[in-house]
Nucleic acid binder design. Structure first.
Length: 539
DNA sequence: CCTGACTCGC
DNA sequence: ATGCGAGTCAGGG
């Protein structure tokens, strides 16, 4: 039809605009259905052949505005028009895509015209601020990749999800009854207010922490109260099940489409560090650490005849830190493929690598973990539940053994203070005006941001580059496998069974080769019929 | 519809 | 008072 012809014409020519991903999503979906009808006509049978790759957008003023100031909470055309053109206008369809009332020919035309005038102005700033590479080589090429991922979606086994839901509900009911017995009354356990009254007024348990508005009942408090009264542990388990039921079982079920798949939206202009985020639903926070939450991953499945192949970067943030700091010991650990937490334990506790105990390794892991966040002795003490003095000794010992890391952190803060901003490997920038603030806690918070952003943001740069490479390689090699999810350091691909070995090799090659750091990038690959049971493929 | 408390992920 | 996100629920407007 005319519409199909129009979409095909659009898909052939690079476009510039404002927030092009939704349009690319339409184009990707049309390309997918076009490829399958074409193949059906030509009786190729089975799987659709390769769709025409969509061109990289010529420009996107929303992405450009995000790169110029990634901290803003919105990137509306009206704000950009004011900032870059000095024009004051009412919101139109570009800023209210969900509002059909503003989708009038006049306003559509006006937004298009604004966008056309904005592009040269805003792209001049991109060039002037050294953001050309991250714009042209990362964010713009990523648009068709994200659109394809959103269109692909991930298959969900609704019956499996519902089975888990029933298990959680049964256990939840059991816990609620026992909680009411111990409380001596029924109440809404989900209400922090009512729970606070029961715990601290009726049962007279000690108040260990308060919030702005009353008693704190968070997990840390309940864990402390577990020593005082059996109700605390029951509430903890009840609350975790309530979370699983509400957010994951019911929340995810609402998003299963008629194709039996969940199609999330990846936000490209939200995280100040350059990471992606995932909404409606968020598929980047599916439980993994504890059962029974982890079992939800059984509901994320590969289509019949397919496998999920998951590839994750091993310790990418610590590797970025090793690269940036040039620290000798950290370099050595990665160059020799050592267990980096064991190596750190060996350094802080002064014992040979082979004699590191699991407890020492656990402490070292917490120290390593906190590095990228600008951790303080106070924070480490809390995380490990040890004294502040002891935490301080661990940190001092760490920085003695890794002086390059200490130097790097001091230098990063010094430079941030001088320039008022920090940058990533690819030149992505983040302004940090608070780094010169005279109130200590505000300034210290800014210093942690200054430490964290280059590390988290560079890892995000590398992952985005890897996604572009993997997507391109899959198409180029004529494979039917498609990227379906990204979870910050992990890519999930859905592949026909017979493609799995090639896809595993491709993922390792393209991800490890995405960027050349001074230490190797290492990728671990796993495959399985669902996201829970996955076998390593690191042969 | 918004905010705060809470909890999930990396 | 260790970084970055999103969603749910309760409770109030």
């Amino acid at each position: 039809r005319d519409e199909a012809a129009l979409l095909a014409a659009l898909a052939r020519r690079p476009m510039a605009g404002f927030d092009l991903k939704p349009l690319y999503r339409v184009l990707a979906a049309a390309g997918q259905s076009q490829a399958s009808t074409r193949d059906a006509r030509e009786e190729k049978g089975g799987r659709p052949g390769p769709p025409e790759p969509l061109p990289v957008p010529a420009g996107d003023v929303k992405l450009a505005a995000y790169l110029l100031d990634p901290v803003r909470n919105r990137y509306h055309l009206v704000d950009l028009a004011r900032q870059f053109l000095g024009v004051e206008v009412e919101e139109g369809p570009a800023d209210r895509p969900a509002d059909p009332a503003c989708r009038t020919p006049a306003l559509l035309g006006r937004d298009a015209a604004l966008c056309a005038r904005l592009r040269p102005a805003i792209e001049a700033e991109i060039a002037a601020r050294g953001l050309e590479r991250v714009y042209r080589e990362i964010e713009l090429p990523l648009v068709p990749v994200l659109a394809a991922m959103e269109v692909a979606g991930i298959a969900v086994d609704r019956e499996q999800l519902e089975r888990l839901g029933r298990q959680f509900a049964a256990r939840s009911e059991e816990l609620a009854q026992r909680i009411y017995e111990l409380a001596g009354e029924t109440f809404n356990i989900n209400s922090t207010q009512q729970l606070g009254q029961v715990l601290f007024e009726r049962l007279k348990l000690p108040v260990v922490k308060k919030t702005k508005t009353g008693y704190s009942t968070d997990a840390e408090v309940l864990e402390a109260l577990a020593a005082e009264h059996p109700i605390a542990e029951l509430v903890l388990e009840y609350r975790s099940l309530a979370k699983l039921r509400g957010t994951y079982v019911e929340g995810l079920a609402e998003h299963i489409g008629p194709d039996g798949r969940i199609h999330t939206t990846f936000q490209q202009t939200v995280a100040a560090t350059g990471r992606l985020s995932s909404t409606q639903p968020n598929l980047q926070n599916i439980p993994i650490r504890d059962e029974p939450g982890r079992s939800l991953r059984r509901a994320f499945v590969a289509a019949p005849g397919h496998r999920l192949v998951a590839a994750d970067y091993s310790q990418i943030e610590l590797r970025v830190l090793a690269h940036y700091s040039g620290d000798r010991a950290l370099h050595e650990a990665f160059a020799h493929g050592q267990d980096v937490h064991a190596r750190t334990a060996s350094e802080i506790f002064g014992v040979p690598l082979e004699q590191v105990t699991p407890e020492q390794r656990r402490v070292a892991k917490a120290v390593n973990f906190g590095l990228a966040y600008g951790q303080t002795d106070f924070g480490l003490a809390r995380a490990l539940r040890i004294g502040r003095a002891e935490a301080k000794r661990f940190m001092e010992r760490y920085f003695e053994r890794y002086p390059g890391v200490k130097r790097y952190m001091e230098e990063t803060i010094r430079r941030a203070r001088q320039t008022g901003e920090v940058t990533t490997l690819f030149g992505r920038r983040r302004p940090i005006p608070e780094i010169r603030h005279r109130v200590p806690h505000i300034r210290q918070n800014a210093e942690r941001v200054a430490i964290n952003t280059p590390i988290q943001g560079s890892a995000a740069d590398i992952m985005k580059l890897a996604m572009i490479r993997v997507h391109g390689a899959l198409l180029r090699e004529g494979l039917s496998a498609r990227i379906v999810l990204q979870v910050h350091d992990e890519l999930i691909v859905e592949a026909p069974e017979d493609e799995v070995p090639r896809v595993a090799a491709l993922l390792r090659r393209e991800m490890e080769g995405a960027y050349r750091l001074d230490v190797p990038l290492v990728v671990e690959v796993k495959a399985g019929v669902n996201w829970y049971e996955m076998e390593e493929m690191n042969g």
